[in-house]
Amino acid sequence: MNDLSLHILDIAENSINAGAKNIEIIVDENVENDKLILEINDDGKGMDRETVTKLTDPFFTSRKTRNVGLGIPLLLESANEADGSLTVNSEPGKGTKVWAVLKYSHIDRKPLGNMAETLISLMLFSDKTELFYRHIKNSNVFEFNTKDLKRQLNIGSLKEVKILNGIKNIISHKLSEL
């Protein structure tokens, strides 16, 4: 993956595939403590301990094995490259939390990339999954959720090109002001 927003898209897609009704995505650019924190929480079907262990085992990562999946091992690799860590907490029937902490100033830390494009890609994936986004930078916060967005627009679905492009522009603009 070229940037972290692509990882977030990939990880949150797992949440959609796990039947999540709500996904919370948090990006915390904590420059003061030299940390970049990414968090993806879902209320999908969850995983048992064995699956989680396999997914986050560096041995499996280095083998790039296909049958245990690729998405989480790739994020683990990106986190490791930036002197960081990855934690996956999951409970069957409850949900999953993926939490990555990277060293903000590390020379090998991938750029955050285009979060607006990642968010509208996720909105296109599913109408039935609500997204809650929170982006913290320099103690400023930008947050929105698709539930309020649909209510404000008075529509049941955001899956229209015009709407998504419009939302993308708004998010880009708000993030540039942080």
């Binding site: 400023n140 916060v141 930008f142 947050e143 929105f144 309020d148 967005l149 404000q152 627009l153 008075n154 529509i155 229209e160 015009k162 709407i163 419009g166 939302i167 708004i170 998010i171 708000k174 002001e177 942080l178």
Partner: peptide
């Protein structure tokens, strides 16, 4: 704290109706 406001969404609302 930056938030998406009704004013931000006004243009999308018009476009949506048309589409």
């Amino acid at each position: 704290m930056p938030k998406i406001t009704i004013a931000d969404l006004e243009k999308i609302r018009e476009d949506t109706k048309r589409t």
